[in-house]
Nucleic acid binder design. Structure first.
Length: 380
RNA sequence: GGGCAGAUGGCAGAGCGGUCAAUUGCACCAGACUGUAAAUCUGGCGACCUUGGGUCUACGUAGGUUCAAAUCCUACUCUGCCCA
């Protein structure tokens, strides 16, 4: 077994834990937040900026990169890392989320998914094999199985069918992954890891079955997919809690698409190690900033004459240089800097939050720190 | 001095007898956003009343016609353009 992931410390009161993921492009301390860079870039931010915030790994999206720039450019660029000038770890989503978010443009079959390009309507066929091969070509450090992220709400029967299809696809992804490894089509210099994805909507027994069978197949890590897609919060956590006991201790667990600070604390308590979300960047572009005293909408009139920083102790480039009043002004006059500053700030917030969490777990103070955070965050 | 056109809610600008408290855009106020078709989308935006809904004050000013006027008529004020 490789030393891809190692648990460093288990919390005594909860299932929270700290750990470290080792890839050939660097180590990742967990729990970790991974900013989303769908098209090979975390929207509005440069690589040096991301590094300055302490970002250790970013997400890219195989579906979007498959459409543009496409295989040829990626091949000529010698992989995604050199193409986008990011030499740290990258995790790619396989396109399974697009099966959900671009539902109106696709048709699912046993073999795969036929998309009508959301850009020009042309037909694109994606399958477990194709997406495994493409993610291999991208040369990403962690790749995801091609899954079907199910819709919400969804009937039990459909959730079951969808979950079972995802299992069959996972098997094919893994077989393709092994085959490419054997044929040395995968670089031996840079190790790649493959994660399985658990589905089953909000049905606990389906979730458990999905987790158990995915774990039986054996992957480098396990993701919880198909949640935070509109279901009530309690159902989301019921689904999560149904699944967690099925996962092996020594493999990383990744909650796909989870991003509010309260939710992240809750999921870490349940034993999750990895997170990604568009929230810090998308909401940032739309004027929302996370602070330890709650979220604020900087566009609101009350900040027009507020010359204090977003968050006194933040230290990000936005807080270090600009006032709420000025950022409020930037949004009103629609300057690009506005969305950039809040994206920087929000990513910084989540990166810092994770370090607070890791610290708390290391010191055995997870529960206290969580309560303290939630109390202050929801008071604001 | 004469002729023509026009004056509508914060701004621009529809409406040209009842279905108009008045289309739309901007501005303004608020909300949403969770593996990004998103620098996007939604709602509110005369006042008052307890909601469905109702009441009042409103389309330059003052009168008038009409069951009914932002819409028609008269005068006035102002603005723009043209001719002398």
């Amino acid at each position: 077994m490789s030393d891809f992931f190692r648990v460093l410390k288990n919390d005594s009161l909860t299932s929270a834990r700290t750990g470290v993921i080792k890839t050939s492009r660097g180590e990742i301390k967990t729990p970790v937040f991974m900013p989303v860079g769908t098209q090979g870039t975390v929207k509005t931010l440069s690589v040096p900026e991301l590094k300055s915030l302490g970002v250790e790994i970013i997400l890219n999206n195989a579906y979007h990169l498959f459409l543009r720039p496409g295989m040829e450019v990626i091949r000529n660029a010698r992989g995604i890392h050199s193409f986008i000038s990011w030499d740290k770890p990258i995790l790619t989503d396989s396109g399974g989320f697009q099966v959900f978010s671009l539902a109106q443009f696709r048709k699912i079959s046993e073999d795969g998914v036929l998309f009508r390009s959301h850009m020009d309507g042309s037909k694109i066929f994606l399958s477990p094999e194709i997406m495994t091969e493409f993610q291999t070509l991208l040369g990403v450090d962690i790749m995801m199985c091609f899954d079907e992220c199910s819709d919400y709400p969804i009937t039990y029967k459909k959730a079951k069918d969808s979950m079972e299809l995802t299992l069959r696809w996972a098997k094919r992804c893994k077989e393709k992954f092994r085959e490419l490894e054997k044929n040395s089509q995968r670089s031996t210099l840079n190790s790649q890891f493959l994660f399985g994805i658990v589905q089953g909507s909000v049905y606990s027994d389906l979730r458990r079955e999905s987790a158990r069978k995915t774990v039986e197949m054996g992957f480098d890590g396990y993701a919880i997919g198909g949640l935070s897609v509109g279901e009530p919060r309690n159902e989301m956590f019921d689904a999560l809690n149904a699944v967690m006991p099925e996962f092996p201790e020594q493999k990383p667990r990744y909650f796909m698409g989870l991003g509010t600070p309260e939710d992240i604390w809750e999921a870490i308590e349940a034993g999750v190690d990895m997170f990604d979300c568009v929230l810090p960047t998308r909401n940032g572009r739309n004027g929302q900033a996370f602070t330890f005293d709650g979220k604020i909408n900087i566009k609101n009139a009350q900040y027009q004459n507020d010359f204090s920083p977003l968050d006194e102790k933040c230290g990000c480039p936005a807080c270090g240089n600009y006032s709420r009043a000025f950022i409020n002004h930037l949004f009103k006059v629609k300057e690009f800097l506005a969305g950039r500053l809040l994206s920087l700030h929000n990513i910084n917030f989540l990166i810092k939050l994770m370090s607070v969490v890791r610290d708390a777990i290391s010191k055995g103070e997870f529960k206290d720190e969580k309560d303290r955070f939630i109390k202050r965050y929801s008071a604001g």
